[in-house]
Amino acid sequence: MHPAYSVIFFTTASGLGYGMLALLGVFVAAGWLPADRWLGFVGLGIAAGLVSAGLLSSTFHLGHPERAWRAVIQWRSSWLSREGVMAILTYIPIAALAWAWIWLEDVSGPWVWAGPVTAVMALVTVYCTGMIYASLKAIPRWSNPWVPVTYIALALATGAVAMDALMRLFGVGSLLGGGTAVVSLVLASICKLAYWRNIDNASPVATAESATGLGSLGTVRPLDPPHTEANYLQKEMGYRVARKHAAKLRQIAILLLFAVPIVLSAIAGVAGDAIGLAAALLGVLSVAAGVLVERWLFFAEAVHVVTLYYGTREA
């Protein structure tokens, strides 16, 4: 699948944002974070900002951004629609949380629910995003239960790293912050590795033979494509990273997204202020770069079954 930058940015930025929102909500509700106005302002601001920027960027890839509002109509069948609905609804607890945290500087009493509700809805939104991909049978590598799980895990992990850095910036860094980052990164890496293992071992769902129904006559190879130049389908679905590049990129993703941030988060968790802050900030950079690579690969490794008509042997 063609890795469109707007979509990569959208899913990674909004994932990080929602993950961070979820954690901030829970942490502040649990009292693991002070209900400090500026902390709330910057934390929620960054998280909600990333979510909003992501959502905005996702409309850039639409043919008709001005009609984007229509996208919420078919929530009963369409995961994209559900994602849209959830994204909008999630602004409500976010707003409540922000009100309590920034304006009231008090998240107790009834406000205590704002955080957990934000967390749940943010993660449901991320789940919807994951399900957009996981519901597409035509892309067997996406049509996989690990996809939404990994989306959530990565949202939490990237969010946790970001939140840890934020905490250190505000001098409220704690072992819990670093620990959360480490644990969520480990969990996310397990999900992602499981996903890769799963797709690498999956047997093909469809073949050039089943796509054409000609298998009983022998193996099927394309002779001439319908048109000599690439068409929309080939450009959109035909993109595929070479196997050896993919292997290398996976290693880079593992390094930047998991290995380096885990080490840095661990350092941040135990080290003193200056080093801890530096490590945490470096961790954010690393995780951000890592998740971009991961998401690019998510697209570039996925094979759409329509490519079976254009030369792919199996998908």
């Binding site: 890839h61 043919g63 008709h64 009609r67 984007a68 035509a138 929309y232 959109e236 679905m237």
Partner: peptide, 19 residues
């Protein structure tokens, strides 16, 4: 009504959607 999100073209296994 189409917003041009292309999702339907991703969903169609047969490549029958034309953006």
């Amino acid at each position: 009504k189409c917003i041009g999100c292309k999702l339907c073209s991703w969903a169609c296994p047969y490549g029958a959607r034309e953006f």
